[in-house]
Design a protein around this nucleic acid. Structure first.
Length: 551
DNA sequence: ATTACCCCTG
DNA sequence: CAGGGGTAAT
């Protein structure tokens, strides 16, 4: 194989290493500012969720196996609202006062429900709202009892020391005290039914959407996250559905597709020109969201729909919608970190691939096996193999392949101390970074090392064999020294070693012979003098090494 | 301080 | 062949 033929072989690899649209693919490593913002928003929303009074809406729809304390704490109100009667003794102990009359319970439940619907003070946890609610109603009952006792006492004592007017005023005050409670009761009687219906509707809608989300999650088993990773799990299996909410959910997903897609992919895909995986981001993201799903309410309107509708139902829809969006966003932020990780991993993996190929001198093909590399990326994405290899090599800054190593070794027959200019000319198909340059320099350093070791070894061997005259030392193509060198730099023996190299080798051997015979080897860095001589014997590298096309 | 090289080790 | 420490030149 002459240099020309070999150069043609290199040309193919040069295409692979150089043609890879660097900036474009490097840009894929940049964190997406949009995603960053969204994830940040999702974090905010997430936090806000816990503070939303509507939180129980989603919590209620959780499966019975849910172990969230939050769900349990908020269950009684929902039970009262929907059933309007005490639960079976088996399902509810006497924690709440079920011994009260059912009418009282119903009123209380209504009050709770209304307050739950009205209260929107952020920062108040759901359980806090409920507990305060209980306190409130209990307090009202207590006031009534106190008033009764007080009245009885007054009757028994004959109004005591109070004057008649005082007594009347006192009774009026008592009436004022009692009024809030009575007004409270009566106010919720008339609009109560509407609100109740709204609640029921809200319940049904939310449950339907919740179920839709669950079904999507279940349809993507491979993407399921650890079920134990979240405290609150949405596992409602009710058969109801809502087209309206479903549509909104779908719209939300689609609206986020373009942004989310690249981040849910693994490392290999992140290096590809095309942004892959368009067909599955929504599922993926939604599924993962079951994890962060504790709450449904956002700080700001997400969609046009939510901004336009102010009624309870639309608010409820909006909650679900936003919940879904938050699912998407949280997942997106998760995926971003994951991709960041996998991208890093991809570099390491590919580095190994490349390193291995570089270390196998017997390999005559392109060092980075496209098949091997392709096996690293997801099967769903169809990409062009060559471009993938190109991009991979470029992005990794590891453009030096086995062929480059082979070429460098052949170059050693001409130059033992190549300048950086020569290296750049001969490896013009490589993106010259500091790392690449260092690697090439190191290669030639290693070549020289082996070269000088062989020279020293054969020089000493000649001395031991009693070679008296340095002129008797020759390096021919049949010599042991040449065979050793040729085996190292031209193992395939498909390259015609120039005669000049034989001459330089002979000179080097003699230099070592002389130095050793003069016991120079006892001095420190005695080889440097030899290096100084040999470095001047470099020849020009043939054009075939510099311009593969012309060959 | 940086760079390049040598030398040794794995 | 790569990595790391040491050294000398710039």
């Amino acid at each position: 194989m002459n240099p020309s033929a070999w150069s043609k072989g290199m040309y193919s690899s040069s295409i692979i290493c150089f043609d890879g649209c660097p900036a474009e693919h490097l840009s894929s490593f940049q964190p997406d500012p949009v995603l960053s913002d969204v994830s940040g928003a999702s974090a905010t929303l997430h936090k806000d969720c816990d503070n939303q009074k509507m939180l129980p809406e989603s919590a209620y729809y959780s499966g019975g196996e849910s172990t969230s304390s939050l769900i349990y704490s908020s269950n009684p109100p929902r039970d009262n609202t929907t059933r309007m009667h005490p639960p079976p003794a088996s399902s509810s102990s006497g924690h709440h006062d079920w011994n009260l009359t059912s009418g009282h319970q119903a009123k209380r439940a209504r009050v709770e429900n209304i307050i739950k619907g009205m209260t929107s003070s952020p920062g108040v946890h759901c359980s806090d709202v409920m507990s305060s609610l209980h306190e409130k109603t209990d307090c009202m009952q207590e006031n009534e009892k106190i008033q009764e006792l007080h009245q009885r006492h007054m009757e028994r004592s004959g109004t005591g020391s109070m004057s008649h007017s005082q007594t009347r005023k006192h009774l009026e005050n008592q009436q004022h005290v009692r009024q809030p409670g009575t007004r409270f009761k009566y106010v919720d009687e008339v609009p109560e039914r509407i609100k109740l219906m709204a609640d029921v509707l809200k319940y049904e809608l939310s449950r339907a959407v919740s179920r839709s989300v669950d079904s999507i999650f279940k349809s993507m088993p491979l993407l399921q996250t650890s079920p134990n990773s979240e405290g609150t799990v949405e596992t409602d299996t009710s058969p109801q559905s809502s087209v309206c909410n479903d549509n909104k959910l779908r719209l939300s997903c689609c609206g986020n597709k373009e942004v989310q897609v690249p981040d849910v992919q693994t490392e290999a895909l992140s290096l590809v020109v095309q942004k892959p995986g368009l067909e599955r981001p929504d599922k993926f993201i939604l599924q993962s969201r079951s994890k962060a799903h504790h709450d449904p309410k956002p700080q700001f309107p997400f969609s046009l729909e939510s901004a336009l509708h102010e009624d309870q139902q639309s608010r409820s829809n909006n909650i679900v919608h936003q919940h879904a969006l938050r699912c998407l966003q949280d997942r997106r932020s998760e995926a971003k970190f994951k991709t960041f990780d996998t991208r890093w991993n991809s570099v390491k993996v590919s580095s190994k691939v490349n390193a291995r190929s570089v270390r196998s001198p017997l390999t005559n093909t392109v060092s980075v096996d496209p098949g091997l590399l392709e096996s690293l990326h997801l099967p769903h994405v169809k990409i062009e193999s060559d471009s993938f290899v190109r991009n991979k090599l470029y992005v990794l800054n590891e453009g030096l392949t086995t062929n480059h190593l082979k070429k460098a070794k052949l170059m050693f027959f001409y130059t033992r101390y190549p300048s950086s200019l020569v290296l750049k000319m001969c490896f013009h198909d490589v993106q010259f970074t500091r790392c690449i340059t260092s690697q090439l320099i190191k290669w030639f350093s290693n070549f020289r090392e082996f070269y000088y070791i062989q020279m020293e070894k054969f020089a000493r061997h000649a001395l031991m064999e009693g070679v008296a005259d340095v002129r008797d030392l020759t390096v021919g193509r049949e010599s042991e020294l040449f065979r050793a060198l040729n085996m190292h730099y031209n193992k395939a023996n498909d390259f015609q070693v120039p005669n000049r190299f034989l001459e330089v080798a002979e000179i080097t051997l003699r230099e070592f012979y002389i130095a050793i015979s003069m016991c120079k080897d006892r001095e420190p860095s005695w080889k440097k003098a030899i290096y100084k001589v040999i470095c001047k014997l470099d020849s020009d590298v043939p054009d075939e090494f510099k311009h593969p096309h012309s060959g």
